[in-house]
Design a protein around this nucleic acid. Structure first.
Lengths: 111, 111
DNA sequence: CATCGATACAACCATACGGTTGTATGCTAG
DNA sequence: CTAGCATACAACCGTATGGTTGTATCGATG
């Protein structure tokens, strides 16, 4: 079972450049936390925390391989986030339609 | 000129349920800050701060109408955020393609 | 001009966040 | 079993965030 989609956690996780970069690197699903950490000018522990944030948000998963844990991006979570923004746009279009309807209605039927 | 798209600010702004709701309500572009505040169980000043966060992120704009300032969602900013997630997915597909290429290449030419 | 309604802003508090270092756990290899 | 690498976690620090209340500004109106 996957982690439930929590918009707060997902958007908060994406609100940091380092974490967005980790998401990109983890698309390959080959690097462990040490390899990931080597790319950033901060301590290993800091990167580990970022990975933990991404993991809680469901954006990445870790799978043990030997003595390492490989980090892999969950593309579905990204799609889910995108879908939420899609909904906003759909609602927006819905409002436009409704306003258009109102205008049409008021032109036709007064009141 | 519009506010530059700052992923950190945009995603951080979207990482709060109250702010996401304000974005939805402001799609209509009719309510002032007081009207918006009336929908939430917090002080007027708190809602005002949320609106300010959204404004800094470029997700909403305020326009003076009489003595009120009407808050309206900038749908383009939402599209922009969605576009970034689209790019992630595109990159992901790119990786798949590249991996497929690698596999094909290694089948042909052995390392 | 005095007032009132709508908005803005400052000061303050508690908690969360991003970073650090240090210590503990888990696997793999000799 | 011991050694060592990869990972995890705890404690700590400075700053940001989300909330509060109180005061100040701005614009319309009597």
């Amino acid at each position: 079972m996957q982690t439930a989609f929590e918009p707060d956690l997902v958007f908060a996780a994406l609100a940091d450049a380092t974490r967005r970069d980790i998401v990109l690197r983890a698309l390959g699903g080959r690097e462990g936390v040490v390899e990931l950490a080597s790319h950033y000018p901060m301590s290993f522990a800091a990167v580990q925390k970022h990975v933990a944030v991404l993991e809680r948000a469901g954006l990445v998963t870790k799978t043990r391989i030997g003595r390492r844990k490989v980090v892999r991006t969950e593309i579905e979570a990204l799609r889910h986030a995108r879908g939420l923004l899609d909904q906003y746009e759909a609602l927006w279009r819905g409002r436009i339609d409704r306003m258009t309807d109102l205008i049409a209605a008021s032109r036709g039927t007064r009141t």
